[in-house]
Design a protein around this nucleic acid. Sequence first.
DNA 1: TTGTACGCGTTATCAC
DNA 2: GTGATAACGCGTACAA
Lengths: 334, 334
Amino acid sequence: MTVTIRDIAKYAQVSVTTVSRVLNNRYDVKDATRAKVTKAIEDLGYSPNIVARGLVLQRSHVLGFIVPDITNQSFPELARGIVQRARGLGYSVMFYDTDHDRRVEKEAIKLLRSKQVDGIIVSFNESNTEELERLKQENFPIVQIYRKSSHSVVPTIALDNVSSAYAATKYLISLGHKRIGHISTGTDVQSGAERLEGYRKALEEAGILFVPELVQTGINTAESGRECMMNLLKLAKLPTSVFACHDIMAAGAYDAILSQGLRIPEDISVIGHDNIQISELLHPKLTTMDTFKYQLGEKGVDLLVEQIEGKDLPRMEIECNTDLVVRESVARIV
Amino acid sequence: MTVTIRDIAKYAQVSVTTVSRVLNNRYDVKDATRAKVTKAIEDLGYSPNIVARGLVLQRSHVLGFIVPDITNQSFPELARGIVQRARGLGYSVMFYDTDHDRRVEKEAIKLLRSKQVDGIIVSFNESNTEELERLKQENFPIVQIYRKSSHSVVPTIALDNVSSAYAATKYLISLGHKRIGHISTGTDVQSGAERLEGYRKALEEAGILFVPELVQTGINTAESGRECMMNLLKLAKLPTSVFACHDIMAAGAYDAILSQGLRIPEDISVIGHDNIQISELLHPKLTTMDTFKYQLGEKGVDLLVEQIEGKDLPRMEIECNTDLVVRESVARIV
DNA sequence: TTGTACGCGTTATCAC
DNA sequence: GTGATAACGCGTACAA
């Protein structure tokens, strides 16, 4: 049925070794034989069985990628960075969506290992740390993306959330804003805590008093962002601008503001975070912090492959900067 | 290094056959021996090598999934449907992003086959038909999603675009609209052609004259949607509503309309198509046609697995309906 | 420069 | 019930 290396060996009247050699571009094979083999491969329509090769080489050239929810808006670009970089380095990637379920995540890891992936990238910050550290102790190549873990042994690609939120807030301040609201995911979420910290740091540095009621806490959905913004709009003295810690929440904030008949940015400025695709589709276009998700994915693969191919000691943590993307949702205070 | 079936056979003092038997839950093994083996597996922390198993079983339980661009907004839900259904059926999925490059697509197919996937799902409508038909002739399990191909031999999951566009247009007509613009991707794109046809059909049926200048053709981006809408807004007599053949283009249309100081839906109603995530984040929320992408993915996997496990003759084409999602962007003409 | 034989980890066949 | 042993398709010592 399937044509194997042995078939083409027979057809080309050489040994399997020779076939294997031309397949892997070895030098020590005469041009004539190489031609014979190449022709046989052509004639028989041979396609190498990479799985069998992996079995003997103990390397599958497949990477595992686990996310809690593909539907998360940061996912597509991140995934693209991962998949394309992997392809460039000769790896395929196998996908798992855990639906935020830790048991599924554990199962996915197990399955991925059974499928002999060479390493695993786990993204987003909900996953089971113990699980990952156990893997790392077994010396299994692994990378986590988006979670910083100062005393962890697991190689990590993370965002410098504090600096990023600091920059966003500072941008508002530089345009004259003093009464700045913050829509947060709260201190229970790592990125939420860090972005809140950056927000406070910027205020403090500018000598602006931190007002607790200007910080509204919700979850990372548009509806929650809308509610947070509604609360802000109920304040006796409105903020002149709002920093939402995720673009999705900023979109919800838009809805709240616009449905109250207020204008963006004339009445209230809004700045988001993440620069996901929708930020450019909102009207007015959302000013936000770009997180370079594609590059994050690339770096994740690099970090993983460093471990797999184990040249030198793998780096433990790569912290990535973000960048302000000025669009239309922030105005100067006159 | 890695612990194999042989190690646990030795440890449990049985043969590898017996180990394999308990691993696969065969009946013909005494409880006592089963216990011994189970304990050995536990003690040694054994994890089966599914790849080796696949080698002898000639089945990898891995599906290939090829898309031209993960970043396409329809992707996440589709992918989720695929990945989760696959998991439910005991399959993993391997991903490829071709970046709209047919050579990469061809290469991806080759690679996926080399990696011994049991079948391939190709999505979106740009791919090389010959390539797919060749695969099908070799009896290789394959499914294409989103392209209808009446005389093709390749099993297909498609949308009934004509009916869908017909329903969208008819909805506008039912609310009193007579001058209805259409933002299209043109007749060169299959979905574009079909949706245009549905639009025309609805007009015709209602006795509304088809006005060529009310149809603006562009590509599936917000910017192009904006340009199309701008052209519509230059018309001496404005349309009272617009049907955009993709939500992304509808988002661009929003931008054009709002930046001209017009209101949605009071001045112009907008209806989109696809019901991607952003449609709910726009303000006002976009009325659109839901395409059930998650289910499309599920059905794609089902159709593929039917071929792989070859129970009966596989179905050749599954056409999926869409559904109107009424939100806030369409008003009744008074 | 080329060929033989073994092993990668598993399952299936056929004995016992 | 259980155990040898031959595949599955490939790479690679080692020999020639």
